[in-house]
Amino acid sequence: MSQTVYRIGVIGAGVMGERMMNAIRTHEAFRIAAISDVSAERAQEAARLSGDVPWYTDYRELLAAEELDAVYLAVPPKFHHAIALDVLAHKKHFLCEKPLANSLAEAEEMLQAAKAAGVVHAMNFPTYYQAIFPELQRRLKELGTIRRIDILTHFHQWPRPWQQTPWLSGREQGGFIREVLPHFTHLTYALFGDLEVIRSEVDYPADPQACETGVSAFLRLADGTPVTINGLAGIAHEEYLDYRIYGTEGTISLQNWTNLYTGGDNERTSRVEIPLVDRLANLLDEFARAMEGKEARLVTFETGVKVQKVLEALLSNE
């Protein structure tokens, strides 16, 4: 890793960005140079934790006043588009939380702006930077012909207890389709390529402002392999997530993000021990490599647009 230390500005100091800011604070290639949040209290506290750096309540003042190499964006999705265009107009390298935007049109405009700016653009999809991803890739060849992929996302409560942020419960930009399914959509793209929604049914409560309570969808890979989505919230069941790949010779199941189970023909699946790695440090390593002009393993805005296309199709029966 280069000894260069890049100055990064943070826009959004709420719950979604806390883990990333902690990772940036301890990473040898980056230094938080300034922070902006609409809440002065949050901005000031995050700035204190980052070494008493300058803080702002208007991100435009941050962009105008600070010498930055890159910007990390962690605000609710409906604000990504406008802020991103301003960041990219300043030609700053850009790390964005998912989903990329709040609509496909916004995502596509962000991608074009990033290309025009000629900067590094990347997104935070944690599973891609865990040791579990290369293990999944390696074991695919053991499955024979892939018959189907099932994605199950069940939540006792939404938003989850540790995610009590009002926008996550709203229909405009919240819900588990926008918050959780991008992870599994990206995982599918990364493992298998393009993905198309064939049909989708979304359940909503009576409150017209509230987000979805369920989704049942059927998708296909480019080679015709079926993919199903079964999502529910507000059920008498503990939170449970399962990304399961069925093959003619074996099955793989990724459960609750970090637990991998595999099994052969007519076998019960058993857990595979996977070493824990610092996924955020890995992402920042790759981001720094790209900023140095080196080849890097990043989820770029191109893939973010593909994920956005799936999200929009899943929600199209609104």
Score class of each variant (00 low, 15 high):
Met291Cys: 12
Arg48Cys: 15
Tyr189Trp: 14
Asn259Gly: 00
Val305Glu: 10
Tyr246Thr: 15
Glu172Tyr: 09
Leu88Lys: 07
Arg147Tyr: 04
Ser2Arg: 07
Thr262Tyr: 07
Leu219Trp: 00
Val38Asp: 04
Ile132Lys: 00
Tyr59Arg: 09
Ala13Met: 05
Gly304Asp: 04
Pro226Gln: 06
Ser103Ile: 01
Thr300Phe: 06
Tyr59Asp: 05
Gln255Thr: 05
Ser270Glu: 14
Arg42Trp: 09
Leu111His: 10
Ser316Phe: 04
Asp278Pro: 06
Pro166Phe: 06
Leu315Phe: 04
Leu136Phe: 06
Asn256Glu: 08
Ala34Trp: 02
Ser169Gln: 10
Tyr59Ala: 07
Met21Asn: 13
Val215Cys: 14
Arg220Lys: 13
Gly264Gln: 05
Met123Trp: 00
Val71Leu: 09
His156Trp: 08
Tyr128Glu: 10
Asn259Ser: 13
Pro182Gly: 08
Ile151Pro: 00
Ala13Arg: 07
Ala13Ile: 00
Lys78Phe: 09
Thr251Met: 13
Ala107Met: 02
Pro134Ala: 07
Trp257Ala: 12
Gly214Phe: 06
Ala43Trp: 05
Pro134Asn: 06
Ser169Arg: 08
Ala114Thr: 00
Glu45Leu: 11
Trp167Tyr: 15
Ala74Lys: 01
Glu286Cys: 10
Glu312Ile: 02
Gln308Phe: 02
Glu302Leu: 03
Thr57Tyr: 13
Ile149Leu: 11
Arg7Gly: 10
Gln173Thr: 10
Ala101Val: 01
Gly234Asp: 08
Tyr129Asn: 05
Glu67Gly: 01
Glu179Asp: 15
Ala29Gly: 12
Glu249Lys: 08
Ala116Phe: 02
Glu45Asp: 11
Glu97Ser: 09
Asp278His: 12
Ala46Cys: 12
Val277Pro: 02
Ala64Gln: 13
Val87Lys: 06
Pro77Gly: 01
Gly234Lys: 03
Asp150Glu: 12
Ser50Phe: 03
Thr225Cys: 09
Asn259Glu: 08
Ile146Met: 09
Ala34Arg: 01
Leu314Met: 12
Thr4Trp: 03
Phe94Ile: 00
Ala84Cys: 05
Ala33Arg: 10
Asp207Gly: 01
Phe192Ala: 14
Glu292His: 13
Thr303Ala: 08
Arg138Thr: 11
Val277Cys: 14
Leu168Lys: 11
Met16Ala: 15
Gly250Phe: 03
Gln137Asp: 07
Val227Tyr: 04
Leu88Gln: 07
Phe184Val: 04
Leu280Glu: 15
Thr145Leu: 10
Ala64Phe: 03
Ile252Met: 15
Ala222Ser: 08
Leu284Ser: 11
Thr228Cys: 10
Ala206Arg: 13
Leu88Arg: 04
Leu143Asn: 06
Arg7Phe: 05
Ala13Glu: 03
Leu280Tyr: 15
Leu221Val: 05
His183Gly: 01
Met123Cys: 03
Pro126Gln: 13
Arg297Asp: 15
Met20Gln: 14
Thr258Trp: 02
Val15Pro: 01
Ile132Asn: 00
Pro161Met: 01
Arg19Val: 02
Asp86Ser: 11
Trp162Gln: 09
Arg297Met: 14
Gln308Asp: 06
Gly224Trp: 05
Glu135Asn: 03
Glu302His: 13
Glu172His: 03
Phe218Arg: 04
Ser253Phe: 00
Ala190Tyr: 02
Ile146Arg: 07
Leu254Thr: 15
Asp223Asn: 14
Ala47Glu: 11
Ala101Gln: 01
Tyr129Ala: 09
Arg48Leu: 15
Ala288Glu: 13
Thr258Ile: 11
Ala23Thr: 10
Leu219Tyr: 00
His183Leu: 06
Ser36Leu: 06
Asn317Pro: 03
Leu191Arg: 07
Thr127Gln: 11
